[in-house]
Amino acid sequence: MTSSMTMDRTTDAATGFLGTRPEGSRMTIMQSFSDLMHQRQERETHKRTRPVETEVVAKLDVRNLNFFYGEKQALFDVSMTIAERSVTAFIGPSGCGKSTFLRALNRMNDIIEGARHNGTVLLEGQEIYAPDVDVVALRKRVGMVFQKSTPFPKSIFDNVAYGPKIAGQRNRKALSEIVEQSLKRAALWDEVKDRLQDSALALSGGQQQRLCIARALATNPDVLLMDEPASALDPASTARIEDLIFELKQNYTIVIVTHNMQQAARISDRTAFFFQGYLIEVDATQKLFTTPTKKQTEDYITGKFG
């Protein structure tokens, strides 16, 4: 997955860490991840979701992506495929490029001045950076949820109905239908169905974040990008969001950036580890957390740095 150039550079940087690390602590951490995986597998079997490894359809296919903010290069030659109807998690220390990569998938970086790239990003085989691609149409199909919940200062209903409305849906009845379905999918319906006209700002933090997910679902996307969606929430709300992501993956392709490795281990099918703008390793989550092939990955998940 990673180019040889990347390898040389990062291996040198990481060897220093390995020498001083007591072997025992590493084993316990690995063990705890292994337990986590085990718990998860139980949950998956219980829910009878399809086994991840049989997924073959590539929803997103990124090849040799380099990304720059002005003079500064943020991503170095990243290639990755993201499978349909799965959860892919991006982990890595802050500033490693995982958010940049996520935002490159629906061209949110276009808004930033001086941002440029080379390489290819294919959505179902179509280059999303091609000059004839309508970025607005792209963002309708690749939705996004942000770290900080960003409800519009409007009613709950208007928040969810906003996407369909601007897409031209004027029929009040159809809108109510979409709002109800989206809120149900986001597991928020029962809590807000009696106060749809209340201000969205009155909701709790966890509810606001689920509202933002509902809002993104209302535009009927195929892919849902989530940039640390639970990092500002309390544990109970986080658990709800994680359950929700689990439900959503039956219908959507989900890509999630998280700074929390336990979270990645709990919810994702595949995990990608970014470091200093390079994609170090991407693999099935269970494999990455229990038997990482790269030393940097191992250092990171055992808490040596990050």
Binding site: D132, G168, N251
Partner: peptide, 25 residues
């Protein structure tokens, strides 16, 4: 959790939907 079961399955849209078209908007 019966949320997923109450929602209808989604249909996949063709990728050509991304192409810029002349539109009023």
């Amino acid at each position: 959790m019966s949320v997923a079961q109450t929602t209808p399955p989604l249909t996949l849209k063709p990728a050509s939907g991304l192409i810029k078209k002349f539109s009023l908007t």
